[in-house]
Amino acid sequence: MRDFDYARPASLADAAAAFAGGGEAAFIAGGHTLLPAIKSRLRMPDTLVDLAAIPGLAGVALEGDTLWIGAMTTHASVSTDATVTSAIPALARLAAGIGDQQVRNRGTLGGVIANNDPAADYPSAVLALDAVVETDRGTHSADDYFQGMFSTALEDGEIIRRVGFKVPLAAAYAKFRHPASRYAIVGVFVARYASGVRVAVTGAGPGVFRWAEAEAALTASFTAAAVAGLSLDPADLNTDIHAGAEYRAHIASVMLAKAISEA
């Protein structure tokens, strides 16, 4: 790899300063998206600012009806955390299905959310669980945060501190996964609240999105029958070497039914 500078600041302020003074700089969390991107020369940073030594960025806390998960919390920790498992078991199961164990030992929630890969799992949970993304500069609601493929509301140099998930009455995530990478070919996250049902779809389109028709039907009646026959328009979905748009539309309906049955 082309060489770069490396800083491991011990506070958010120092991290912001290192980023600002680092030329073409990038934060590094688990590195499981960034390092492969650097290896393949998709990214060529001058400076990496490691977030690992900043206290308080990892961990889980339940405050009222919000489950907070720190940006640096690994997928492995989320998948086995007792608070997550009791408050939002679907979230623990989602984390347990990301990549493989070695990936889960390093990859972090903040890294996934900052990157916003259209096939990543967590964005569907952030959107369906009406989460708030808290940064060193303020907060973003999930509905405003995701802005299409690899694009988010984060400004240059903004650091995610933690994500607050609204605890639902019931929730489930169903993923049809790519057999080698285990990213979602289609993933559907369903969350039921007293105020209504939220449904988010990842993997299928150019970015995570809410499925309005499914939400309306499930808010009226939370049953698989209520959404039988409902289908996404393939014109809005991806076609790539893994699957065509019509196939993805079909799988989305199947994953929706599966998620409802598991919620």
Partner: peptide, 29 residues
């Protein structure tokens, strides 16, 4: 591999398995 998928590079860091091809040496400081 070049894609962090094969696991041939697994080592233990403080007892936990990680892919050493997807970790900077300085991150293991």
């Amino acid at each position: 591999c070049d894609t962090s998928q094969c696991g041939a590079c697994n080592v233990l860091i403080d007892g936990v398995a990680v892919k050493s091809c997807t970790l900077l040496a300085v991150q293991a400081d």
